[in-house]
Write a protein that binds this DNA or RNA. Structure first.
Length: 200
DNA sequence: CGACCGATTTGCT
DNA sequence: GCAAATCGGTCGT
């Protein structure tokens, strides 16, 4: 039976091994809980698509810290996205939590996402943060306090895990480091990275 | 200090 | 299908 002590051990592994093991895990904040159905791996400074690609900065410092902590960043002036820090301390690997299914606190999640269908409540990285009310104040939080992560008792079998290119990146999007539970309706729709607008 | 741009979502055409 | 919304991180002058 996986206790909280095991979490950091599991997450300290190689990010490509850890990412699929997060599928089916339950992330809880307050009364809202989300079962993860889609994640994306980022491999620290070795990965051109990672926030850590250009070394440690004020924003990404948490990525360089110990595993089993939350890295939450703010983007596009209006959205938050949450990652779970993986790998040994100093490796700066992380797994972006792209989508999930709300399995508890449905009413609270619906209030936070007015107009959204239940399926869409946490379908997308920024939507997931909105449903769980995660923001920059949770950056660096360990996963045993206000926010918890519970690994599945039995991992989602690899026959039910699909992989594909990462979403929304300009660089290295082609690496098949996105993992999702095959057939899950809460998985976000694939969108290739937007082409750069030509400058006049 | 100024300019550029992003691991997105939403709404309108 | 496409562009707007909106701001902090990062880099160049």
């Amino acid at each position: 039976m996986p206790g909280s002590a095991d979490l950091a051990v599991v997450l300290s592994g190689l990010v490509l091994d850890v990412a699929p093991r997060l599928l089916g895990a339950v992330l809880r904040h307050g009364d809202v809980a989300v079962r993860l159905t889609e994640v994306e791996a980022y491999d620290g400074p070795n990965d051109p698509g990672s926030h850590a690609a250009r070394g440690r900065t004020g924003r990404n410092a948490v990525m360089f810290g110990p595993p089993a902590h939350l890295y939450v960043y703010y983007i596009y002036g209006m959205h938050h996205c949450a990652n779970v820090v993986c790998g040994a301390e100093g490796t700066a690997a992380a797994v972006l939590l792209r989508a999930g299914e709300v399995v508890a606190g449905l009413d609270t999640a619906r209030r936070r996402r007015p107009g959204a269908s239940d399926r869409d409540l946490a379908r997308g990285p920024a939507r997931l943060c909105r449903a769980l009310a995660l923001d920059r104040t949770h950056d660096g939080a360990d996963l045993t306090g206000a926010v918890t992560l519970l690994l599945p008792e039995t991992p989602v079998p690899c026959t039910l895990v699909s992989t594909g290119p990462r979403v929304g990146l300009r660089l290295a999007a082609v690496r098949p480091w996105r993992f999702w539970v095959t057939g899950e309706p809460t998985v976000s729709t694939y969108r290739p990275a937007a082409p750069r607008r030509l400058r006049a």
